[in-house]
Design a protein around this nucleic acid. Structure first.
Length: 282
DNA sequence: CCAATTGTTATTTA
DNA sequence: ATAAATAACAATTG
């Protein structure tokens, strides 16, 4: 489920709940696949009695920094990727975890819960001050100055035969973009999802670049700024002028042209577009 | 039973 | 050899 803006919302939710509080206990569902490759005993031991010292979100990942005691020896990093169905929630201190609640951090007042039924998500843990590799390797954010038209153009050239929709989902250049954001960007840029990446004109590349930035920024305002989490396609705060609230309804109509929307698999994912607005060329 | 699902990665195919 | 397509991962819902 979560892409860029929802990930940021979840991060803020945990950060707010854990602010200035000590973690009094840690529970892990050890056999859950979200812990593949992580030492859950080490995680429990290191976080017990620790305090949250900071956090960040980038792409579809989050990192929570913890500190225990004064020195750098007590520092550690908790990484979370929510996969397709993961969610971070905050519950009462005595919350009883259910089947899909894989990680619970308790403070005196609250329980921070990671829930993920499908377990495509992942929890990583590393002790020490140094930033984990996987975090350092995340591509520069779409809203950062490093995300330039030139960088996008070079990337599209290397993937010239792939449909542009598939290329937008590649995290190494478009970190945080998921299925609905990709459709929203292509719709705004008036590009057909099956258009080969190498066939975009210079003007189209520029439009694509601008709409990537615009959709990220709008999504962060509307979704990450909200109090509660609502699945993006049912979020009442999403303006009807976006493609998003129309894209999953059969017989949905394009808010710009009034024409029927189409839905097909492109680049292996269900894709929605407005044929009257987004046309294949050459 | 079948098809669907807002993600990533390993494997297969072209 | 490279890039693109597909299968696989797991669970649930319609």
């Amino acid at each position: 489920m979560p892409e860029l803006a929802e990930v940021e919302l979840f991060r803020r939710r945990w950060a707010r709940a854990a602010a200035r509080a000590r973690i009094l206990s840690v529970e892990t569902h050890d056999r859950a696949a979200v812990f593949r490759g992580t030492d859950t005993a080490e995680l429990r031991c290191a976080l017990n009695g620790a305090m949250l010292s900071g956090s960040a979100a980038a792409a579809k990942q989050m990192i929570f920094h913890f500190r225990r005691g004064a020195g750098s020896a007590g520092a550690s990093h908790l990484g979370i990727h929510l996969g397709m169905s993961g969610e971070l929630t905050v519950r009462d201190a005595d919350f009883a975890p259910g089947r899909h609640d894989h990680l619970v951090l308790r403070t005196a007042r609250k329980s921070l819960v990671l829930n993920d039924p499908r377990m495509f998500g992942r929890v990583q843990f590393q002790r020490g001050q140094a930033m984990p590799d996987w975090w350092a390797r995340i591509a520069p954010a779409i809203l950062s100055p490093q995300f330039t038209v030139e960088a996008v153009e070079a990337f599209l050239r290397r993937r010239r035969r792939a449909p542009i929709k598939a290329v937008l989902l590649m995290q190494e250049r478009f970190p945080g973009i998921g299925n609905w954001m990709a459709d929203e960007i292509l719709w705004r840029a008036a590009l057909h999802p099956r258009q080969p990446a190498g066939r975009l004109t210079a003007g189209e590349v520029r439009r694509l670049w601008r709409e990537c930035r615009r959709v990220c920024s709008l999504a962060l305002d509307v979704i990450a700024g909200a109090e509660d989490h609502v699945p993006a396609h049912r979020n009442r705060k999403i303006p009807r002028t976006w493609l998003l609230p129309h894209r999953w309804r059969d017989g949905g109509r394009c808010p710009r042209t009034g024409g029927h929307l189409r839905r097909e698999t492109v680049g292996g994912r269900t894709t929605c577009w407005s044929p009257r607005r987004q046309k294949l060329h050459r």
